[in-house]
Design a protein around this nucleic acid. Structure first.
Lengths: 213, 213
DNA sequence: ACTTGTCCTGTCATGTCGTCAGCTTACAGC
DNA sequence: GCTGTAAGCTGACGACATGACAGGACAAGT
């Protein structure tokens, strides 16, 4: 799909080149999770990868370009989140389990891609269309199947509910919790209570009913 | 409270100095709303303010230091958000109006301080305690009185509801909507429907009941 | 060993960062 | 008005990041 990997000046990268490129991406990822985005410098990434800045510029136009690469990879990976909702039942106790597993999976994914998602979120907020698109791809991998779930469940009881809006709000809440979990604990939500609380919100949003005890 | 304004090397700033300092802050604020945070350079801010980079470093340790200054100013300003909830009624139609006005006021505040809040949010997500504290101050100016509102209303009908958690979730949702409004429209929520939808969510969260028609 | 095309780096011009000595300006005390 | 002192500002500088290029190193096939 992506075609061949190419250098900035148009050459096709071979085996060795791709390895170097990948190492640079890995080091950048590492860098992003240990330093503020603003302070990530090409020279540091290159040093960590045991190569020179010039090599970095062979494969990427700049730091942002490389970040986009990582972000796109992550967005591909996010497709797996669909399985947390697709084909799951929302009835009774099983439904609440579905909700719990969704919350669990989503938070795990976010934590795993913590650093890159921070940058993507910033870029999207700053109005960069490329980052916005990537962020939407991640959120939609949950929001889309969740919209169906809302339509099939809550829809039965209340026709006035706009399924995409509800699903969007729920996903936004999950993203907020994942990104700023500390805020919730400082509001007195105990760490171990965060997931159950979110699961409850999701269950309520999807079914429009309180969960069975 | 803040004592006297001082330069980095400890001198107290006089009238002219404070003017220069303020002009630098204003230009930085402007800069933040027109360029990506990563690309905001001291030299550009100084140029825009008609002064030299060296002058900038007289008043601020670095860009981040100046940003913190702006952010703290904004956090002070956020105290006014309390009035959107404090002493308001949540009963019947009046209650829904309260909810609408809260949503309106919150979104307006966020839009007004768009650029700086983006940076604060990033800093908080990156684990910087100073930015986290500022972000909490802004969110709490709504979350705190909202917690009381939840306790006084929903609390009556359902003792199991954790008021701070509900208020926190609502504020998080508002922040997400403010920061990533475009995401909601791309989920098919019409621009004019966003505020009513949020108002509905808030009303539901606080009272636990559907609003009167 | 030679050729070919990929891969990497030394080096350079440009520009930013952050600091400092030193010049200019404001002002209080006489 | 004169002078001393502190505030205010900048030119200049060393250190470092950026981005481009030419050319050397390397692997693979002949």
């Amino acid at each position: 799909m992506t075609g061949q990997v190419r250098t900035v000046d148009g050459r096709v990268a071979g085996r060795r080149g791709q390895e170097t490129r990948q190492k640079l991406l890995d080091c950048l990822r590492e860098m992003l999770s240990t330093s503020p985005y603003r302070d990530v410098k090409v020279i540091d990434v290159a040093r960590m990868a045991g190569t020179s800045p010039a090599t970095f510029y062979q494969y990427f136009p700049d730091v942002e370009g490389a970040v986009l690469e990582i972000a796109e990879e992550m967005a591909e990976d996010s497709g797996g989140l669909k399985e947390l909702v697709d084909g799951k039942s929302w009835a009774g106790k099983t439904g609440f389990t579905t909700s719990e597993e969704l919350v669990d999976g989503f938070l795990a994914f976010w934590r795993k891609n913590d650093a890159i998602l921070r940058v993507v979120t910033l870029g999207a907020a700053e109005g960069d269309k490329r980052f916005f698109k990537i962020r939407m791809k991640v959120l939609n991998s949950v929001a889309a199947p969740l919209t169906e779930a809302v339509r099939n469940n809550q829809g039965k009881t209340d026709k006035t509910v706009e399924a995409p809006a509800v699903a969007g709000a729920l996903v936004s809440l999950l993203a907020a919790a994942a990104e700023h979990g500390k805020a919730f604990t400082s509001w007195g939500v105990k760490v171990k209570d965060l997931k159950p609380n979110l699961a409850l919100q999701v269950y309520l949003g999807v079914t429009g009913k309180k969960p069975p005890k």
